[in-house]
Amino acid sequence: MSEAIKNRYEFVVLFDVENGNPNGDPDAGNMPRVDPESGLGLVTDVCLKRKIRNYVETVKEDTQGYKIYIKEDVPLNRSDREACADMGITETDDKKVTEELK
Rank of each mutant, 00 (worst) to 15 (best):
R53G: 05
V74Q: 12
K95P: 00
D80T: 02
D35W: 10
E57A: 15
V56N: 05
E37Y: 03
E91I: 09
R81Q: 11
T63M: 15
V46I: 13
D86Y: 06
P32A: 09
G29D: 02
D62N: 14
E91S: 13
G88Y: 05
C84W: 02
E72F: 02
T63L: 15
K96Y: 07
R33V: 01
K51A: 11
L76F: 14
D86F: 07
V74I: 15
L40R: 15
M87V: 05
R50L: 01
K95W: 15
R53M: 09
R50G: 05
C47H: 02
T63Y: 11
Y69K: 02
K71D: 00
S79A: 15
A83N: 01
P32S: 11
L42C: 11
Y69Q: 07
K95G: 00
V43H: 04
E72P: 07
R53S: 07
K71F: 05
R33E: 02
E82V: 01
G88S: 10
I52P: 05
K60F: 13
T58L: 12
T58G: 10
R33F: 03
E82L: 04
E72K: 14
E57M: 14
Y55P: 01
R81W: 04
V59N: 04
L76D: 08
Y55Q: 10
R78H: 12
D94I: 08
C47M: 08
V59G: 01
V97P: 01
C47W: 03
E37D: 08
R50S: 06
L48A: 08
T63N: 12
I68S: 02
P75I: 12
V43G: 03
D93L: 14
Q64F: 12
V59R: 12
E37H: 06
E82G: 00
K51L: 12
L76S: 10
D93N: 13
V59W: 06
T90H: 12
I68M: 03
L42S: 06
V34Y: 09
D93R: 12
P32K: 11
V97F: 10
T98L: 13
L76N: 11
Y69W: 13
R81D: 05
R78P: 03
V46M: 10
G41I: 01
V34P: 01
C84H: 02
A85L: 14
A83G: 01
I70L: 08
T63Q: 15
S79E: 06
G41S: 10
T58P: 03
L40W: 13
D62H: 11
K95E: 15
L48E: 00
Y55V: 11
P36S: 08
A28I: 00
E91T: 07
S79Q: 07
I68T: 06
P36D: 07
V46W: 04
A85F: 09
T90C: 11
V43E: 04
R53H: 07
K71S: 11
R53P: 01
E57G: 07
D86L: 14
Y69C: 03
R81C: 02
N54H: 09
G29T: 04
K51W: 06
G39P: 05
K51D: 02
D94W: 05
K96E: 13
K60H: 13
K60L: 07
Y66P: 03
C47I: 04
G65E: 04
D62Q: 13
R78W: 07
V43Q: 03
A28N: 05
M31D: 00
E82N: 08
N54I: 08
